[in-house]
Design a binder for these strands. Structure first.
Lengths: 159, 159
DNA sequence: GTTATTAGTTCGTCCCGCGTACTAATGTAG
DNA sequence: CTACATTAGTACGCGGGACGAACTAATAAC
């Protein structure tokens, strides 16, 4: 018999493990839902998100997304086929290409980001302003702790 | 130039949107990492997790995971091939099957859950006990708000 | 008792990720 | 300057994963 922790807790608290786990699924679900309005998968959305303020080479993109470079080839292929990104030759290295958003891609990622923000606002709307601030701060501290201890992560996780 | 909100904020606060988004990626990353030790994808892990305290039919499983029933067929096929779950005929309905964990599947999902819990503990370790409690409570409230507002795509009209 | 609905599977199609093998350009000896 | 290694990117095969459409079998509804 387990779940003793849950039984010792009020129903207004899932416990830190389940609360964070379920919250992560909820947040990802909101983002996925907004992206799916444009037929964007999660990884396509992350790609566009990363490109909002960068024009990386395929190599850098692979590192930013935590993927193999061969995976990025196909990913960019499909995004390019849909007119969301474009490849341009790198100026200084004739082997390399730079990937950048098209205007259509930028418009879409901006829209998805805006709608996602309003989802977050909506779902935190029942919290008081100080509570929201507190949640934001605590979440930030956890993220920082994670970034500080986890080796392979990028930093730009959101579209 | 954007990001004015970030500039108006201290560096110890990403803002509620980015904080929750990045937190969700961090949490999912921890879970994915623990699961990958057993060559489990995220969806396979969710499958095992759902089965910890249930023996649903394929139909119910599809609803629980938010997948099409045809997707669940393949998912369970692969899990069964690896000896993680088994199909048993439902007692009351000869069309239906019930899916349950094998002992091997249970052992694995329990281990993954335990390790994931310790990851969460580690990453919230720098928070004081009251702060952790507060984070847990706030996250729970947000999750409840989400569950309460998110329509589960059913759209099925009852005649 | 015929018809409609429901539970599951199968199949074709696409996306996604990896590893391997390949080409082309750049670096590094000597 | 010529070899050789390294780096950037692509191509291809494989398997997992998700969907919708078409199908069988059992149940429910008329």
């Amino acid at each position: 018999m387990q779940y003793t922790a849950a039984m010792a807790r009020g129903d207004d608290d899932l416990g830190i493990v389940d609360a964070l786990a379920q919250l992560s699924f909820a947040v990802q679900g909101m983002l996925a839902r907004r992206a799916s309005a444009y037929d964007l998968s999660m990884i396509q959305t992350r790609l566009l998100g990363v490109l909002r303020d960068r024009e990386p080479t395929m190599q850098e993109l692979a590192r930013l997304l935590g993927l193999d470079k061969s995976s990025v080839s196909g990913l960019v292929d499909r995004a390019q086929r849909r007119g969301l990104v474009q490849r341009t030759p790198a100026l200084d290295d004739r082997r390399a290409v730079r990937v950048k958003l098209t205007s259509s891609g930028r418009r879409i990622v901006d829209t998805v980001a805006t709608r996602f923000s309003s989802d977050i606002a909506s779902v935190t709307g029942s919290l008081s302003a100080p509570d929201t601030k507190q949640l934001s701060r605590l979440a930030t501290r956890v993220v920082r702790e994670y970034d500080g201890s986890a080796p392979v992560t990028d930093g730009q996780s959101r579209p």
